[in-house]
Simulated scan of single mutants.
Amino acid sequence: MPPTDTESDRNDDESPADADETGRTVREEHSLSRMRATIANRLQESYRSAVHVTANRDVDAEELLRATEIADDRLEADVSVVDLLLCAVSATLADHPAFNATFEDETHRLYEEHNVGVAVDLDAGLVAPVLRDIGSKSLGEVATERRRLTDAVQSGEYTMSDLRGGTFTVTNLGALGVDSFTPIINPPEIAILGVNRIRERPQRGDDGIEFRKRIGFDLSFDHRIVDGADAARFLGSLAEYTETAERFVPDP
């Protein structure tokens, strides 16, 4: 039976129940989870309260990779590039204590301990469990503690105390193939280091062009507290420690 005039008019006028006034079709919608909402609020707070500037530096990674292999041979702990970088970061913070700090209530507080948060990607969002007092730990202890915290976060068996008390943060997107990004400071800290992927790049050597592995660092800092020259010097020290990373591997 053909539709009546009333039925035909109604079909012409109706839009899909999930389409908006512009004709876009909503695939799905949902409210933010508690964790995602917390992350969103903290990121908004970070951008509202800090003057973000990011400095970049490209560093030779051949020694870093070699040191990782040596550490795997010498230590019982499963040592990764990230663990050696954390030791390099701690040494750099010792040289540049203004970055191992927070800024709250108009006060720049510098800390003795290097409590470094290491960002971990979860389905629900990004969290940064804190490795406490890295400067007092050996490479093997850093590797063991980092893996323990990472496993605890990924399994949901962590407490809020594991996420508090940080003085600096490291976030690594290199494992996901990223060449450069702009890390967002984790308030009330004043700086965060982004680690990019390791890749081969050509450079002039004694016998012509040679290919060497290199790694990129992105340092975001609060320009109210430290200046660009301070950040450049920080990255210079980090480059030196990265390019001499075997110093962090204990003797056999």
Rank of each mutant, 00 (worst) to 15 (best):
R24T: 05
S46V: 09
A17T: 13
L84C: 02
T242P: 08
V118D: 07
R42I: 07
G140H: 10
T22R: 08
T22A: 14
D123S: 15
I70A: 12
E76T: 11
F168L: 05
V249E: 05
A94I: 10
N100C: 12
T167N: 04
T150V: 14
R34T: 14
L93Y: 01
L122W: 11
T159W: 00
S33N: 06
A232F: 09
L149H: 03
Y111S: 12
E113I: 09
E246C: 07
A61I: 05
G177P: 05
S80K: 02
R66C: 05
R214W: 02
R48S: 14
V249R: 08
V153I: 14
L131R: 02
Y158W: 10
G23A: 08
L86D: 05
V51R: 12
S136L: 11
P183R: 02
P202Q: 01
E141K: 11
V120K: 00
D95F: 01
K213L: 02
R197I: 00
D222M: 02
A67V: 04
D133F: 04
I209V: 15
V226H: 00
D151Y: 00
L131C: 09
A175F: 11
G205D: 07
T102I: 07
R34G: 14
D18E: 12
V116R: 05
A61L: 03
I70F: 09
A152C: 01
A94G: 09
A124K: 13
G216V: 01
E141F: 00
